[in-house]
């Protein structure tokens, strides 16, 4: 149920320093999110597509992951063009479809898909542990990193706990349905997960103290310097600049 399908690979993207990837994933996503002009948005889409291709990920799986968002986007396409007021683009019977509604839907679609693909290509191509260490090196507060690594360590354990409990319920003849009994059962199941988690947390904490935990969590990972990191950084900086320029070409034309 929980896995990191893209974390392992030998592509050029996988081999780039996760710190560089995280920084540019953030910068590019923000730049895309605040862009409105279609030139910029299509550039972002193309760029994110290139990144996904460069990462040599299983395309079927990438598309499957994108479908989750596509469902939501389809809903937007259904709602926005109909409810948005403005210049009427076309009419289907009594229903009018407005141009601003269509434009907005298109913008949101382009943005979401590009940002998601950037995320897949640049962030999910490192395992969460590596990402945590990269965040530590980037100066993210140590507590957050510690929290992240701690949670990551235990989600698998707790998921097993959950599976055990639901197996136990199934063995006792529990079939979920829309009734109070089902909700009560799930509530007790969740409660049990939390109780066991809390107990485990106590044990883990005591074990950590026994091993001399003094409030500092050491990240020993090292990220060796390599020329390709800087080439990547250069390419991404240029892309970022192009993206920003495309968004502001109007302003640039006015200035010259």
């Amino acid at each position: 149920m929980i896995d990191e399908p893209f974390a392992h690979g030998s592509s050029i993207i996988h081999r780039i320093d996760p710190r560089f990837k995280a920084v540019f994933a953030g910068a590019l996503s923000v730049a895309t999110a605040v862009s409105y002009r279609f030139e910029a948005l299509f550039f972002a889409l193309g760029l994110s597509l290139l990144l996904v291709i460069a990462a040599r990920l299983a395309m079927g799986l990438v598309i499957k992951k994108l479908m989750v968002v596509v469902g939501f986007l389809l809903l937007l396409w259904l709602v926005l063009p109909l409810t948005f007021e403005g210049e009427v683009f076309t009419r289907i019977g009594p229903v009018k479809i407005t141009r601003p509604g269509l434009i907005l839907s298109a913008q949101i679609t382009l943005k979401s898909l590009s940002i998601l693909m950037m995320f897949i290509a640049l962030v999910t191509t490192a395992s969460l542990v590596t990402l945590g260490h990269a965040m530590d090196r980037l100066g993210i507060p140590a507590k957050i990193v510690h929290l992240l690594l701690m949670s990551y360590r235990y989600i698998f354990v707790i998921e097993q706990e959950y599976r055990r409990l639901s197996r136990a319920a199934a063995v006792r003849g529990f079939t979920p349905g829309t009734n109070l009994h089902t909700y009560r059962t799930y509530a007790y199941l969740v409660g049990m997960i939390f109780v066991r988690a809390a107990e485990r947390a106590d044990q883990v904490y005591k074990a950590m103290r026994c091993r001399g935990f003094n409030g500092r969590f050491y990240c020993l990972a090292e990220f060796p310097a390599h020329r390709r990191n800087w080439i990547f950084a250069g390419l991404m900086t240029i892309s970022l600049a192009v993206l920003v320029l495309l968004e502001f070409t109007n302003a640039a034309q006015v200035l010259t």
Partner: peptide, 27 residues
């Protein structure tokens, strides 16, 4: 949260994550 509680918050955060995977039928 001081460092003494990080293990606790972290593991509860993990349980929160797992709880959000539970699908409850409605109709």
């Amino acid at each position: 949260i001081d460092y003494d509680r990080i293990a606790r918050v972290g593991i509860l955060s993990a349980s929160f994550f797992v709880a959000s995977l539970i699908h409850v039928p409605i109709g």
